[in-house]
């Protein structure tokens, strides 16, 4: 059944959050030092290459969200914690970067190892 114009406009203004109301113990908290796993999946993933293997600090903890890697493969929502990880630009790009600059990237729990 096709949605009509009222339903479409209402759905657009409502949106569809991928936040999951599930209580899961968080492995990390704001301020923790972490390393991004060096993974190279052939399917969909939201961990960009430029942060793999790099060290970061948890900047924000967002709570539990659907995991895109499995969701894109119709392999389930695999709800897990999502964080904003702060990388120094020098960690990512070396000495050419300004020592003050940062790049903050959202990372799911499955992308992260403790240090």
């Amino acid at each position: 059944m096709a949605i009509n114009r009222e339903q479409a406009v209402a759905a657009a203004s409502r949106g569809a959050s991928t936040r999951v109301a599930q209580v899961i113990a968080a492995r990390f908290k704001v301020g923790d030092r972490i390393r991004i796993r060096n993974i190279n999946p052939v399917g969909h993933t939201r961990v960009p290459r430029y942060i793999r293997g790099k060290v970061a600090t948890i900047e924000r903890a967002y709570g539990v969200f659907i995991f895109p890697d499995t969701h894109a493969a119709q392999a389930g929502e695999k709800p897990q914690h999502l964080y904003a990880a702060r990388f120094s630009a020098r960690e990512l790009w070396g000495e050419q970067a300004n020592p003050l600059d940062n790049v903050v990237v959202d990372v799911w729990d499955d992308y992260v190892d403790p240090i």
């Binding site: 949605i3 339903q7 479409a8 759905a11 991928t18 969909h44 659907i66 895109p68 969701h71 894109a72 119709q74």
Partner: peptide, 11 residues
């Protein structure tokens, strides 16, 4: 809204 695929499959 047809529910045929999700946003991650779309990406």
């Amino acid at each position: 809204a047809m529910g045929t695929f999700n946003l991650d499959e779309f990406r």
